[in-house]
Amino acid sequence: MNRPELVCPAGTPAMLRAAADAGADAIYCGFQNATNARNFAGLNFTPNQLQDAVAYAHARGAKVLLAINSFATAGRYDLWQKAADCGAACGVDAFIVADIGVAAYIAERHAGRRLHLSVQAAASSPEAINFYCREFGVRRAVLPRILTLAEIHQLKTEIDCEIETFIFGNHGLMVEGRCSLTNYAVGISTNMDGACSPASEVHYDRNTAGVVTARLGSHVIDRFAPTEQAGYPTICKGRYCTSPRDEPYYAFEEPISLNLMEMLPALIGAGVDALKIEGRQRSRAYVSSVVTSFRRAIDAVVAGRKPELVDLVALTEGQKQTQGAFATKKWR
């Protein structure tokens, strides 16, 4: 049985160290600007911090993957170029990219450095993945969270590179890299600015009855009764009214997190090369807890043992978890 890489998130240097200490094989992170898809306040790395982080990770046998996975916009393309040059100078092991222009630049200027295709590229077929492999020498594709296990198994046999799938964290259900919902609501683009529902536009109000209203800009996203679990204030996790329904409902998806711990043997058996944990915007506590649990579980599976299942539901959105699209087509 192959031994897949455990790929873990880091929003800060301390989180990166926590991930490395907890047994991450690879850690992904980004710079403090629009070049990556988690461009949030107080998060991410300066060039100096990245350099130190690479040294720390390498000393512990972990790789560092730099996410430059937003879409470079005309007029400030140099920001993405500089991020790539700076990452190369810091000695990162791979770049995670979505934009064709950024991929072309790195393939030319930093030839030989590994390129991973971000989930933001939305490549969900062998034809799409093989296009990026042929054009830019992409070595790994991060799959959108929309394929069933059987589909991943089949896909693996038809492509020319490694595959990485998400196993825990935010259950993004919009095709990533193709979503302008935040921009429609508040004028900040997920693709161009690297932020989905940025905190600067989110407001919570609590009334005297304890009901909390979540707003994104001027739009009410949801209302939570005092004893109701909450989710991220994103448009795709909100409740709406519509004519076929009598009551407000989660039109896209309820607040819920992906957790594929029970599917690890099947995923590894399907030939998945890397297993990814989402959550650069979370915390040291999150990364320590989730990485430790998955490290143990993966090691057990690779050694042919039954993995010990750990309860991670306290860390999940809405305190609920799902196997989402991976388990059944019914999810669609």
Partner: peptide
């Protein structure tokens, strides 16, 4: 984890959320 505390309703932030997240 702050997000977990928010999901479980053990943490509530009103006013400037960006400042708090930062």
């Amino acid at each position: 984890d702050g997000d977990s505390l928010f999901f479980s309703r053990d943490l509530l932030i009103t006013g400037n959320l960006e400042a708090a997240v930062c």
